[in-house]
């Protein structure tokens, strides 16, 4: 399993955090996701056979947030 940090802009409260954790957490190949309101990011542990940094970024973007990959 791999780990990645995705920057997330646009969350305002804990329910935003939970929405992302639940939605992304349900996707295939996600072992763990921890979203932080303060740090404005999501730490995701995933199976690299099923997901890539780009698909994870897109999943959060699609939910209506700004998602960025640190490089």
């Amino acid at each position: 399993a791999k780990s990645i940090v995705v920057g997330v802009e646009g969350m305002t409260c804990n329910s935003c955090v939970q929405t992302i954790e639940q939605h992304v957490g349900k996707m295939n190949g996600i072992h763990n996701i921890k979203v932080s309101l303060e740090d404005k990011n999501a730490v995701i542990i995933y199976d690299s056979k099923l997901q890539t940094p780009a698909t994870l970024q897109e999943a959060i973007y699609d939910m209506g947030f700004e998602a960025t990959l640190a490089d």
Binding site: G10, T12, C13, S15, C16, T19, G64, F65
Partner: peptide, 13 residues
């Protein structure tokens, strides 16, 4: 929707 983050997300999509 429960907060402004939600309504902003709706706006973006």
């Amino acid at each position: 929707m429960t907060c402004e983050g939600c309504s902003n997300a709706v706006t973006r999509v």
